[in-house]
Design a protein around this nucleic acid. Structure first.
Lengths: 328, 328
DNA sequence: TTGAAAGCGATACCAG
DNA sequence: CTGGTATCGCTTTCAA
């Protein structure tokens, strides 16, 4: 690997001049610049990011914390973040926290130690105190908080929407599946659903489930054993919805005649389920991109008027809900 | 952030001694060590990885290149790698190459510039020449090559198995869906299927498809428009299989009576499809872990006798294939 | 057993 | 417009 010294020697100038040329700071004579460019090309010189980082106390790395990389919702978020960052010349370190605080802290430490210049976290941990004294800006993703900038989707609407669509399609005994997390958005989501159900005066039961594949099947069985008469399920996410759908088939239920199901997230797979899953869509990719944009503004020290960006959710009608509205 | 200097001052020793104490190299008096430990604790000192990295030309970072983070197979691989690396105190930088050479090169550059000490690549790019002059060890994952160490699954068996199971279940007009990539494992897979089909003297058609969600649906439609009479599909992966299954439903086909489908990979979602997807399982998580183990050995400079680790695949019988074998 | 000092590769101040 | 040099935080001789 060629160093700046090699370039300086080859170009017959000092390292200081090379540095100025590379960074476009300070004066460099046109002719000198050419010599330097030439030398750089010949040596295939690339500045050493580590040395830069040591001096500047800044890398070009961005940290991204995901709760569970196996849940397709999060890679989608990640892609949004990545695409935006890529366009600005930043690189991503993805940390999979596995919904464990310890791993999350580990990654934060790694990020600090590698001089990341910004952090986006979709952590599902209830407490956020470990984000308090960071030396770089932070954006929360898929969650919100008054203390930190954030990009999230409208959970209240989401919950409400899910409930409304089910009620308007004639469900009488609805099961609300709650995720395991206690973030504001999760609470909103739950509140939205419950509020709507109260208002509509429809009977409902609540069950708390995991979000993960490994346990989704267990919860689906549990659901039908506890509430065998349920005729409408508001799932905690699409993964759980898929498991519920699967279990419903196993039990010989007709979907959507006997049972209607609404998922949450709209991951790519949901369209391929049978019947295709009706769900509340969170604009994951856009959320990621927005979070990246916000973080970039913050890193640039720009004034940001709106630090908490709320994105809309949307009911995606497919075929786990009945086609025609009716009031029975 | 406290530096080694602060620790030295607080402990009343020189930075050299602190360094020795931290790294357990050279002599440090027991009492001095205690002082230092004490100071470290009080100051909550963490060595600056960047400075270390600059000096050593080595970080504790491992690069991981994934072709497409949205395809659930790859997060699964990533988890295997991550878990093993985590246990050894290494950290992962995940780069999503998006099946584009340019992005892949970009990440490799980032990895070099950040002094990664090892690289695992699941790249699907046909050429590998950009991996030739690396200053750190490389392990190929989910592909193989004579020049580089690798961990991969048995494609020949996989293809053969898929074909055999379909043939033995009475398929007469099989469609073989080929992935878009030209890696050895992909070729093996295809060859395995075709060989078996030839041997069994069963009619088959071949179609090349993408692996991605976005295009899977298109290919599924294409498949049935080109080969409406097909009664058995060997899909390029589970994502494509899901799309085929979906399209088959749309066309009113009975699965597995009219049409049998075998996927590839066995991603977590496949069990929730309807009917649950029969597929060839690649042990993704284990593959990731093995790759990590192999890389660690390589980084340690250990002699590795077997540089190309082949893992077995397995037919997972679910319900897109018929239950009973029959010969018609 | 310890510490002074050189150096990893780059940046930026300050003189010239 | 250019170059010498201190500096970033840490590791590692080498001498004491």
């Amino acid at each position: 690997m060629a160093t700046i010294k090699d370039v300086a020697k080859k170009a017959g100038v000092s390292v200081a001049t090379v540095s100025r040329a590379i960074n476009g700071k300070g004066y460099v004579h046109e002719d000198t610049r050419k010599q330097i460019d030439e030398a750089i090309r010949e040596l295939n010189y690339k500045p050493n990011e580590v040395a830069r980082s040591l001096f500047n106390k800044k890398s070009r790395l961005i940290g991204l914390i995901l709760p569970d990389i196996r849940n397709p919702f999060f890679p989608e978020l990640a892609r949004g973040v990545e695409d935006e960052m890529q366009e600005h010349g930043f690189r991503l370190i993805i940390g999979n926290a596995d919904e464990k605080l310890e791993k999350e802290l580990d990654y934060i430490e790694t990020f600090k130690q590698n001089n990341v210049i910004g952090l986006i976290s979709a952590s599902t941990n209830e407490v956020l105190s470990h984000y308090d004294n960071l030396s770089f800006p932070l954006v929360l993703l898929d969650r919100t908080s008054v203390e930190h900038p954030s990009v999230y989707a409208n959970g209240l609407d989401g919950g409400r929407l899910a409930a409304k669509e089910l009620v308007s399609r004639g469900c009488k005994r609805i099961s609300v599946l709650k995720g395991p997390v206690e973030t504001q958005t999760a609470r909103d989501r739950f509140k939205g659903a419950v509020d709507e159900l109260y208002t509509a005066n429809v009977h409902f039961d609540v069950m708390t489930t995991s979000f993960a594949f490994q346990e989704a099947e267990y919860w689906a069985k549990e659901l039908f054993s506890k509430y065998p008469d349920t005729d409408g399920v508001i799932a905690s996410n699409d993964v759980v919805a898929a498991a519920v759908l699967h279990e419903a088939h196993r039990l010989g239920k007709q979907i959507p005649e006997d049972l209607q199901i609404i998922g949450y997230d709209d991951i790519p797979f949901s369209q391929f389920l049978y019947p295709p899953l009706s769900t509340i869509r969170q604009p994951a990719y856009d959320m990621g991109r927005e979070a990246a944009k916000l973080l970039i503004k913050l890193m640039d020290g720009k004034k940001v008027e709106n630090k908490n960006i709320l994105l809309p959710v949307q009911f995606i009608e497919r075929q786990t809900t009945r086609k025609v509205e009716r009031d029975d």
